[in-house]
Every structure is written in structure tokens, then in C-alpha cells.
Write a protein that binds this DNA or RNA. Structure first.
Length: 843
DNA sequence: TAAGCTCATGTTTTT
DNA sequence: CATGAGCTTA
């Protein structure tokens, strides 16, 4: 098609990229053997046979099941290099999709190493969303947008929906915008438009107004010349369906399609891929049919022209089901693409045999897997087993992990090679606190983002209005920031005028300031705003964008606003604004920069610094570290209660996959921790070791002896597993048995319903005795010689107001009030606190 | 208009 | 507990 300026030849005869004959290369077939016989180019050297098969099977559909650490990225990048060097396609004829920018960036770099500058000619290598934007900008008018449309982030979306909910006269507290934003997101993940959502869904929000609101939202987006993340996929899908001629152009263009992390694709992404993977012979089957998902949009029948699509993934690492990913997509691949070749990569180059053994045994507890078993070719008898540690509470956990890190550091291990992977981000804090105390460098990955800061968002809002005058959300954000005396009333007037005429607010403001509608003061203030934007917009194409950006921030008074601010954060904010301008230099234009920010929300981390990495298990996917710490393996936290409540069995399986991801991040050393007490929402609760611990195979695990800290599991004997029955590993230490017993008790009493009423709590005695047996607990039950208090909220409290009590953390105090099993106590030193009755005793 | 107060809320997270 | 949102008060 003529509007592709990017067709650049690579190797071989530029005029005629050769397409190999259709049909896949049967493993062991003549073609495959012939390929092997040929002397292998450099880039193929060092691939193992499976990898090489995956690289060289260029024709036809191919599913690569790549276990953790089996060289997935290498296969993907080498495959692209291979296609290019054989001249099977131009760089611009390869569609390569990833989920994250990080993955896209890495792939690009690694292809660059293999093929050099040719990678620059690959405009279709990127995330689903970035490729979606590219498609949509080309065909924006077919979706009712202009090609300079704005991409809204979650925050904008919520504000917009809130306005709509209020406009409907609904109570935005009863019907939170955030909830509806999530619903819309869910629908868009499934590729459903307002008219296609299930009736039940439509009814479940705002007294049956769900569908109407969704439609109103889409209409509003059109007026704003904007779209949300979901639209980046859904609009192209609609365009392809409604305009087969356009789709055919892309079908013809993309000679090779590669998809990374296929197990994470949602339904919309799946439909998108299927459309793009259509080939001439079967494109007839698709028409402008409504979204009746998944129904034979493709299907390369044997004997017809097949599609060269290669999906790489690992069903065992599917951890994004909660945001719409369909593991089923990968499980169904061979049905979707008949005649597909499947290559399994099971040879692991990352972890020790113990780590692999533990991970494999754990994941084997899941049903419905495609089934892979990782193995290593280099088992080493000296390797450490997976260590399981117990701690009294999360504070001790953080302290002990800190000690181990320092110890490793003394042995010469770099902090960069260590990571702490948590289930939930609140766990990070305790580690951060501890590391600050120790003076240990750490880095939080996936924390609060640069572009989400207030001052950055404000500045971006200015830029957005300049770049795209219809962006009302941005306009509203900064029209009175800094304060210009444009209060609610004035803004309301502009808003209503704009809505009534279906024009952008900036245009409405321009109209209004020419009339006598507004009071003199707001009128002149608004006039200045309008004039400013008009001027900045006129400079957009003639002024270097960084210069323009600085001009905007100065002339608007935004910079001055922070300069005059005497608060502690102000200097930091100014610094961030400077950083923002600096980072703009790397982009060609203001628009390019805005797009980058919309799609790549994160700023780069400082990798120079040697620091321990702290992140969630989710963000650890794809990474590897020499030493990995996995704290918080307790029921309710991991597996997370909410996954269990909402996802049932499949929720549990997803949690298990998450555990599997965690285990397989480690190359050499792996330490798992659980604590017996954790503070949740301010209350100390006793916890039970995660069921996943029991699912680890004894042969690869060692329960660490920890006699080092106060109140801990000091009296532990040598760690042992129950040899009698390897499948029902019961650890034979007292603490373990107690844990087991607690667990079965708890299960019987419906553990962890959200009420928190039947959470088991362990009572304890004086501060220095820690877990001392039987000392002064409230209502007790003896297990293994230790006293376990069970307190349930419907049991009347044994205390009365005015009682003098002792609490291990807060010391002595008097009871002020009682609420079920929760006591409000005025502590002598710590002030008033609410604690559970099982944590205090009378003095 | 901005600070101060009460109240509700509480996974994971990309784009 | 700790944060954020919304509301009240000076």
C-alpha cells in the first residue's frame, strides 16, 4: 500500500524478498534436515535444538511453550533476525507485539545486536497499545476521531465518568466512577461496545443505566477527540471489521506475526490478532459481523495459505487473569490455528535443580495446564536448597532478610543481584524502613510514577490543551491552576455553554469572553487564558518544543506558583518540572512526547546504583536474580484472600502460578519467609503459613533454623520433613504442627471470610517471653504445649471498661471502650489505640 | 479559598 | 494504621 513509506530492503535482493513455500516445516522433515545441514549462521550458534527449531520453523502457525528461564526472548529475537537475514520479509513486514514497553525495548535492543540498524526499519515492533495507536492515527476518521486524538489515562477517565454520573443526576457515592471505569475496562477487554454488553452487566450499574452511561461515555470521548486505553484496541478491531479492504492491506503487509507472552492476551487482543492473522484465502469468511467473538475469523485450513504467526508464552505464568487475560487463548492455540507446530522449551538456563524442583512440584498442583517440566543440564550437588524461614512478625522478617542481605553483600554479592518479591505493595514498606535504618541501598520497582505526580500532570495538562484544543479534561484541570479567580461558577458556565453546543470548552471560553455573560473579573482572567492558549497553539509548529514548554509554564504562572510556595515539597516539584522539560528533548515534537507519556507511564530507573530490588511478584515477571527473597507466605496474604473469595479455584491456581513465577526468578539462592503475626489494617492478626509451603517438595527444601531473634521460633529442632508421605509433607517442628493444626481448625470455621471474625489470633504473654507457653493468655486452647487463644467477635469480651491491661507492643493502659473483641485502650505511653482483646492481659 | 476534620477504605497493574 | 476524599469551618 502506498502510504507505507517505510519499506526498506534488508538483506538479499531488495526488489524481491523471497517467501518460502507455504506449509510448516515438519520437525525432522526433509526441509528441517536440510536446514540443519546448511552451515548455521552466527546467530544460530549456541541455540539448543528446541530453540533452533522454534527459530527455523518460520512458515505456518507456531506455538512456543517457553518455560521460565528457557531463553524465550532469545528465540523471539533470533527468529526475527533469521527471517530478516533470509530475506523472507522486509523489516516493515514483521509485526511483533509485546505487552510491556520494557519487553518491547529489550527486544528491539537485542535484535539490534543481531542485525544492526535494520531494526530501525521495524515500525511494527511494539506493545499492543503502541501499535494500536499507530493504526488508529492512520484511520482515526473511521472511528470518529481526528488523527491528533488524545489518549486519556485512568485518572482522566475516572474524572470524566464522574461528570457523566453526576450529569445523570445519580449519586456518585453510591455509584463510584472508579467502579464503572473498571466495568468499562472489562467490557473493552472483551471487545464489547455499548450495544454488545450483556444485559445483566448493563443492569448491574446505576439502576440499569449501565449501557446508557457507557454510550454517553463513548460519545463524550468523541467530542473530546480522545480515547482510552481500551479503545486503542477496540477501535482498530471495529475498523477492520467494517472495512475489509483496509484489513486486507494489513493482512498482505504482515508476512510474519510474533506475539510475546501470549498467555496474557485478553479477548480484545485475541480478536485483533486473529483479524490481522487472516490470509487472503479465508478472509471471505469474515464480514462486518458484529462482535460475536472468536467465531471462525481465521482458521488456516490445510492446503490453503497459512499464516506465519508465532506465539510465545507459558500458561504456567499467566498471572493477569484479574485484568482480563484469557489463559484459554494459549490453551486453544492448536484449535485456532489448525496444523500449528508446537515447540516446548523446557531446558532451563537460569536456576539450580533445587529451585526448579521446588517450582515444578508446586505448579504441578494446578489442573488444566499444557504441562511442561523444567530441567537443568547442569545440576550441581553443592547448590543450596530452597530455604524456608519463620519469623514472629513482619518486623522481624524485614530485619532477618536485611541481615541475610548484608551477609551476602559481605561475601561479595552485588545488591543488584538480589530481589525481594512481595505479594502486595504494602509489604514493601517494612523492608524500606529497615533498609533505611541499615543504610542499605534499595530500589522500588513499579512504585509511584513520575508522570503521575501532581505537578507533572498539571504541566502535561497545559501541553495537552496546546496540542489538542478539544481536551476538556486537561483544560478543566488547569484553567484555574494557578488560581486566577475562576471559581466553580465561572467554570460551570463555560462547561454548560460548551455542552449545549457540543464544542470544546476552550472554544466555548473564547466565545464567552467576547460577550457580557461573565462577571468582569472572571471574564478578564478567562480572556487571558484563552489568549495564552491561542498564542501557544500558534507557536506549536514554529517553536522548538522544549522552548515552547518552558514558555508555557512561565507565562501561565505555573512555575511562579511553585516558586512562591513555601511548603517543603515545592523545591522538589520545581526540580521535577525541570526534569520533565529535560526529558522532552529526546522527542521530536510536543505531540510525540505526549504520546510517549501516555503509553509509557514509567520513567527509567537508575541502574548504576548497586541496590536491592524490591517489587511485587507481578512486576517481577520476566526478570531474574541471583538471590531472591519471598516474604509473606501466609494464608490470606499469599494466596491472597481476595483471589480466593472472588476467583475460587481458578483464583487459587492463579495465585499458585504467581508463586511459581516468584520461585523461578531465582538463579541460585531462594529464601521464603512466613510470619505468625502481621498487622492488617492496623490490627495485629495471627497468621497461618501458606498452603503453598506444603506444596513444596521436601527433597528440595530446607527449613531454616532461626534462633536468633526475640520471641521467635527459638526452640526449633532440626528441620525435617515427614518422610512417610511426601505428598502430605507435614513439617515436624512444633511451630509447623501448630500451623497445620491452626489451619485445619480455621478451615473448619470458614477461615477468612472477610468479616475477620474467625481469624485465629495467638495470644502471648510478657514482652520478653514472647511466645512463652501458657503464660497469661486470655481464653486458651493448648496445642503442642503452647497456648493459642481463639477469639471470635461474637464471644463476649472478658474485659470491661476501666480494666488495667498490658499489651506487648504498647505497654500498660486502661480500657476506654469495648467493641466486640476490639478494645480501645488509653495506653500510658502510646496513647489511644484499638487492639484485639487477645493481645492484652489484665495486670 | 485553604486548612482542618471526619469518614470510609483497604490486591496484584499495563497500557 | 494510613491514606484519601469530601465536607465544614475560619
Amino acid at each position: 500500500m502506498s502510504d507505507f513509506p517505510d519499506d526498506m530492503p534488508f538483506f538479499g535482493d531488495p526488489a524481491a524478498p523471497r517467501a518460502q513455500a507455504g506449509g510448516s516445516v515438519a520437525p525432522g522433515g526433509i526441509a528441517a534436515r536440510a536446514m540443519k545441514a546448511r552451515s548455521a549462521p552466527n546467530y544460530l550458534q549456541g541455540l539448543n535444538p528446541e530453540q533452533r527449531l522454534a527459530v527455523e520453523t518460520t512458515e505456518g502457525p507456531l506455538l512456543v511453550l517457553a518455560g521460565a528461564g528457557t531463553g524465550k526472548t532469545r528465540v523471539l529475537t533470533t527468529r526475527i533476525a533469521h527471517i530478516l537475514s533470509l530475506g523472507l520479509a522486509y523489516p516493515s513486514q514483521i509485526l511483533a507485539v509485546t505487552f510491556t514497553n520494557k519487553a518491547a525495548r529489550e527486544m528491539k535492543e537485542r535484535i539490534g545486536v543481531l542485525v544492526g540498524g535494520a531494526v530501525e526499519g521495524m515500525p511494527w515492533l511494539g506493545t499492543f497499545h503502541s501499535i494500536g495507536v499507530k493504526l488508529l492515527r492512520r484511520h482515526a476518521e473511521l472511528a470518529g476521531l481526528k488523527s491528533d486524538f488524545t489518549i486519556l489515562d485512568t485518572d482522566d477517565v475516572i474524572r470524566l465518568i464522574k461528570q457523566l454520573i453526576q450529569a445523570e443526576g445519580l449519586d456518585d457515592k453510591r455509584w463510584p466512577a472508579r467502579t464503572f471505569a473498571n466495568m468499562i475496562d472489562g467490557w473493552k477487554n472483551k471487545g464489547l461496545g455499548p450495544s454488545e454488553i450483556p444485559e445483566g452487566d448493563a443492569r448491574s450499574f446505576a439502576n440499569g443505566k449501565g449501557r446508557q452511561l457507557y454510550q454517553a461515555y463513548q460519545d463524550r470521548l468523541k467530542t473530546l477527540n480522545a480515547c482510552d486505553f481500551g479503545d486503542l484496541l477496540c477501535h482498530p478491531i471495529r475498523i477492520f471489521r467494517a472495512h475489509p479492504d483496509i484489513l486486507r492491506e494489513y493482512n498482505a503487509r504482515f508476512k510474519y506475526i510474533l506475539v510475546d507472552e501470549y498467555q496474557d492476551t485478553n479477548t480484545a487482543q485475541y480478536m485483533w490478532l486473529r483479524l490481522l492473522a487472516q490470509r487472503p484465502d479465508n478472509s471471505r469468511r469474515q464480514s462486518g459481523s458484529p462482535i460475536s467473538p472468536l467465531a471462525g475469523e481465521i482458521g488456516a485450513k490445510p492446503g490453503r495459505s497459512t499464516v506465519n504467526i508465532c506465539c510465545v508464552g507459558d500458561d504456567d505464568q499467566s498471572i493477569y487473569g484479574w485484568r482480563g487475560a484469557e489463559v484459554d487463548n494459549i490453551l486453544r492455540f492448536e484449535k485456532d490455528f489448525p496444523g500449528a507446530a508446537v515447540v516446548r522449551l523446557e531446558r532451563n538456563y537460569r536456576s539450580t535443580a533445587h529451585i526448579l524442583g521446588a517450582a515444578s512440584h508446586l505448579i504441578a498442583h494446578n489442573e488444566g495446564r499444557l504441562g511442561k517440566t523444567l530441567f537443568t543440564e547442569a545440576p550441581n550437588p553443592d547448590d543450596d536448597r530452597v530455604h524456608v524461614h519463620a519469623a514472629w512478625d513482619s518486623e522481624e522478617e524485614a530485619r532477618a532478610v536485611g541481615e541475610e542481605i548484608e551477609q551476602a553483600q559481605r561475601k561479595g554479592h552485588a545488591l543488584n543481584n538480589m530481589a525481594i518479591l512481595v505479594r502486595a505493595s504494602f509489604q514493601m514498606r517494612e523492608f524500606e524502613d529497615r533498609f533505611v535504618t541499615l543504610g542499605l541501598n534499595y530500589r522500588v520497582i513499579g512504585g509511584p510514577r513520575f508522570y503521575e505526580r501532581l505537578e507533572i500532570r498539571d504541566a502535561m495538562a497545559y501541553f495537552r490543551v496546546v496540542a489538542q484544543g478539544a481536551d476538556d479534561l486537561a483544560f478543566e484541570r488547569i484553567v484555574n491552576t494557578p488560581k486566577r479567580g475562576l471559581g466553580e461558577a465561572a467554570i460551570r458556565q463555560v462547561h454548560d455553554y460548551a455542552r449545549a453546543r457540543d464544542i470544546p470548552m476552550l472554544a466555548a471560553a473564547a466565545d464567552l469572553v467576547a460577550t457580557e455573560e461573565l462577571k468582569p473579573k472572571p471574564r478578564s482572567a478567562l480572556k487571558e487564558v484563552v489568549d495564552n492558549f491561542t498564542r501557544w497553539q500558534s507557536l506549536l509548529d514554529s517553536t522548538p518544543h522544549t522552548e515552547l514548554a518552558e514558555m508555557i509554564l512561565d507565562e501561565s504562572g505555573y512555575t511562579a506558583m511553585w516558586q512562591n510556595d513555601r511548603s517543603a515539597e515545592a523545591p522538589g516539584r520545581l526540580e521535577n518540572l525541570k526534569e520533565l522539560i529535560r526529558s522532552m528533548e529526546e522527542y521530536e515534537s510536543l505531540r510525540g512526547f505526549l504520546e510517549h507519556v501516555a503509553l509509557v507511564m514509567d520513567a527509567e530507573q537508575n541502574e548504576e546504583l548497586d541496590a536491592v530490588n524490591i517489587m511485587t511478584l507481578h512486576s517481577a515477571k520476566g526478570l531474574e536474580f541471583e538471590t531472591v527473597f519471598l516474604p509473606g507466605w501466609e494464608e490470606g496474604l499469599f494466596p491472597h484472600q481476595r483471589s480466593l473469595d472472588e476467583g475460587g479455584r481458578s483464583g487459587l491456581e492463579e495465585e499458585r502460578r504467581l508463586a511459581y513465577v516468584g520461585l523461578t526468578r531465582a538463579k541460585k539462592n531462594l529464601h521464603i519467609w512466613f510470619v505468625s503475626n502481621r498487622r492488617i489494617h492496623g490490627l495485629w492478626q495471627s497468621t497461618i503459613p501458606s498452603r503453598f509451603l506444603e506444596e513444596l517438595p521436601e527433597a528440595h527444601v530446607e527449613v531454616a533454623e532461626t534462633g536468633n531473634s526475640y520471641g521467635g521460633y527459638g526452640g526449633y529442632g532440626q528441620s525435617r520433613f515427614d518422610r512417610a508421605d511426601p505428598f502430605q509433607n507435614s513439617y515436624s517442628t512444633p511451630g509447623w504442627q501448630r500451623a497445620q493444626q491452626n489451619r485445619s481448625e480455621a478451615t473448619r470455621s470458614n477461615w477468612g471470610s472477610r468479616s475477620g471474625a474467625n481469624v485465629e489470633r495467638i495470644g502471648y504473654g510478657e514482652a520478653d517471653s514472647g511466645f512463652g507457653a501458657g503464660r497469661g493468655s486470655v481464653k486458651g486452647r493448648t496445642i503442642d504445649g503452647e497456648l493459642v487463644a481463639k477469639s471470635v467477635s461474637d464471644t463476649p469480651s472478658a474485659f470491661k471498661p476501666g480494666d488495667r491491661v498490658f499489651h506487648m507492643k504498647f505497654g500498660n493502659g486502661n480500657i476506654a471502650a469495648i467493641d466486640g473483641n476490639k478494645l480501645t485502650i488509653d495506653f500510658d505511653r502510646a496513647g489511644q489505640k484499638r487492639v484485639l482483646d487477645s493481645f492484652v492481659q489484665r495486670v
